[in-house]
């Protein structure tokens, strides 16, 4: 039997098919990524215990009314681009004060930082003793008859909070861990008719200020931009080294934001 040549397959139309697919993907592609500000909604609680009053100096209230007028700390603001500067001031003005200088500023109503949140500083030894005390308190609660499950987990959570601070201070590499007042927060108060554009702008300014502060610190402590830390974590959320860095920055500049539901 004579050998027959296998006929070649004509691949000339391959390019056409590929082009067709290419054009389909070209048309359906949207290159802009979805970007958003992620926020937490507070959990619904049935019994509302009136919260302890927060000192005026720990609140940065950003208000916008239905006519889209803006007020930051009860001062009218024309240009919403200035909000981030006020946030930076809020976080930074007292950050270097400690000991007697802080006491003096607290008592002196004419001091520029008097109406802004103050910082606490804690050493390694201080954290260590807090951890021991927290463990002791948690164990005591656990041994009580009929102790509530939620209370026990709350007490142990307290312990792990201090453990985290100890870890963060080690990473920080300094003697003291400065922490802004635990009640210091940013409060967004808008009205029913405030445009979403302004609401989003306020969120944007907050994010910009937080980014700037964390970025400056990140460069100082790690010699690394904050953006690259976030990017690394977005790729691989379980990267412990970068997670620790992020946690430290978050501890130094916490983003506590309260969005107040408008009253009708």
């Amino acid at each position: 039997m004579a050998k027959r040549d296998i006929p070649e397959i004509n691949a000339g139309s391959m390019a056409d098919i590929a082009f067709l697919l290419l054009i389909f993907f070209l048309v359906t592609t949207t290159m802009d990524r979805d970007k958003a500000y992620i926020r937490d909604i507070p959990k619904n609680v049935e019994v509302v215990i009136p919260p302890a009053p927060v000192p005026e100096r720990d609140i940065l209230a950003i208000k916008a009314n239905s006519a889209n007028q803006l007020m930051v700390r009860d001062e009218l603001m024309e240009n919403p681009d200035d909000i981030s500067e006020r946030i930076l001031e809020f976080y930074r003005i007292n950050s270097e004060l400690s000991g007697d200088a802080m006491m003096a500023a607290m008592g002196d109503p004419n001091h520029p930082g008097n109406n802004f949140p103050f910082f606490s500083r804690i050493s390694k030894a201080g954290i260590e003793s807090r951890i021991q005390a927290a463990i002791k308190a948690a164990e005591e609660v656990e041994e009580q008859e009929g102790a509530e499950e939620t209370l026990i987990s709350f007490m142990w959570n307290e312990v792990s909070q201090w453990e985290k601070k100890k870890f963060a201070l080690n990473l920080y590499g300094k003697k003291m861990l400065p922490e802004i007042s635990s009640q210091a927060h940013i409060r967004i108060e808008v009205q029913d008719r405030t445009d979403y554009e302004l609401f989003a702008k306020i969120q944007s300014e907050i994010e910009e200020a937080i980014f700037e502060m964390r970025d400056d610190s990140a460069k100082e402590i790690f010699g690394l931009g904050y953006a690259s830390i976030i990017a690394k974590l977005a790729d691989d959320a379980s990267n412990l080294e970068y997670k620790a860095k992020f946690d430290l920055l978050k501890l130094l500049y916490p983003d506590r934001i309260i969005e107040v539901t408008p009253k009708n």
């Binding site: 802009d32 990524r33 979805d34 970007k35 958003a36 500000y37 992620i38 926020r39 937490d40 909604i41 507070p42 959990k43 619904n44 609401f199 989003a200 969120q203 944007s204």
Partner: peptide
Amino acid sequence: LQDIDALKIAYAVKD
């Protein structure tokens, strides 16, 4: 969202 305990919200913007 609060009523059904869906507690994460995101406000979209053009970056």
